[in-house]
């Protein structure tokens, strides 16, 4: 069981074909990076960080993700500590100051850099060693990221490897990753175990609908060629209702997640309280437990837009969407 989880999650990161061939197993021994490798990563990094290139869509998606994370954390602060605390947090430039944040499948570090700039102690992990190299190289050029007391760190690791360590995080994000892993259930429970009690889990992925097939595969990959062909696989897309039903039944083990033997208990019912306890009509979760919000690319502005909560029962989550769920304090 233990080793099979390792193997599955080792494949989680390589969602862009140009990096797939450089993929190495997470179990492979890594060495400290030398100058020749830095030059090598620099060449690669021009693809990850070319904002006008193949990953332009991903770059443009980043602001809306960060805004959403910021918005939800402000909202939770309001729920926990009231309006004054929310105002105080909002007025801070570094809105995530003092928080431990994990970015699972960080790729070239697009999201991790933004989170670190907002003051979070950020750890970006990726199972592809070359991605980690790219992320490191890119951040090292930016004095804001490389000198502010090591608030940004990258590791070549998978979520399952981190589960075996004692550390948990206030915020765990995994953006546009889950539709690329082989065993999404194991991946979800690994992510969930990394969240502190009262902490937040943010995911973004694509719903399995005819619309999403048309937009993300037919249009984006084959017609417009905005995204490299083969980036997405329709059968791996995940519907919001599937994420919600996972967290309705998810009961993490009550004991410390640092003991490797607990991995076997993943998803089995030891804890009294699931993360999502009830749903409204259409299977919608309650506002304080979880939320699904669609995001839509507006071609004429070149920006992604967060759909309003009330646009449809599912927040217009017919294609790309963001998912937020909060771990209860007492779970």
């Amino acid at each position: 069981m233990f080793s099979s989880v390792q193997r599955q999650t080792a494949r989680l990161s390589h969602f862009f074909p140009q990096n797939a061939r450089r993929f190495q197993s997470a179990a492979a021994t890594s060495s400290t990076v030398n100058a020749a490798e830095i030059a090598h990563f620099s060449r690669l990094s021009s693809t990850w960080w070319d904002e006008r290139g193949e990953l332009a869509m991903l770059h443009r998606m980043n602001p809306v993700r960060v805004r959403y994370i910021r918005e939800k954390l402000l909202e939770s602060t309001f729920e926990d500590h009231g309006e004054d605390a929310r105002r105080e947090m909002e007025s801070r430039r570094e809105v995530l100051k003092g928080m431990d944040v994990l970015d699972v499948g960080c790729g070239g570090g697009l999201l991790s850099e933004s989170l670190a700039r907002l003051g979070a102690r950020t750890l970006g992990i990726d199972a592809s060693e070359s991605n980690v190299g790219i992320a490191l190289t890119h951040a090292s050029v930016d004095p804001q990221l490389s000198s502010s007391g090591n608030s940004l760190e990258y590791r070549h690791a998978s979520a399952e490897q981190l589960v075996k360590e004692p550390k948990q995080f206030d915020v765990v994000c995994s953006m546009e990753v889950i539709e690329h892993v082989d065993n999404p259930l194991a991946f979800l429970s690994a992510c969930a175990q990394l969240v502190k009690p009262g902490g937040h889990l943010f995911l973004s992925t694509i719903a399995r609908t005819p619309l999403s097939y048309f937009l993300t595969i037919l249009a984006a990959e084959h017609i417009l060629r905005e995204v490299a062909v083969g980036t997405h696989t329709y059968s791996k897309f995940i519907d919001p209702s599937e994420l919600i039903s996972f967290f309705q039944s998810y009961r993490p083990s009550a004991s410390s997640p640092s003991t490797p033997t607990d991995l076997g208990d993943m998803g089995s019912g030891a804890s009294p309280r699931p993360w999502i306890t009830r749903t409204y009509a259409h299977g919608l979760p309650t506002r304080l437990e979880a939320e699904v919000r669609g995001i839509v690319y507006i071609p004429w502005t070149g920006e992604w837009k967060l759909m309003s909560r009330s646009s449809t029962p599912w927040g217009a989550a017919q294609c790309n969407y963001l998912f937020w769920v909060r771990r209860p304090m007492d779970s």
Binding site: A28, S30, S31, A139, S140, E153, R155, A157
Partner: peptide, 19 residues
């Protein structure tokens, strides 16, 4: 496995100076 992953941990602060 765990040890291998730990060794790959790289802190930006040290790397940046050399870079």
């Amino acid at each position: 496995v765990v040890f291998a992953a730990r060794r790959s941990l790289a802190r930006l602060g040290c790397r940046q100076r050399a870079f």
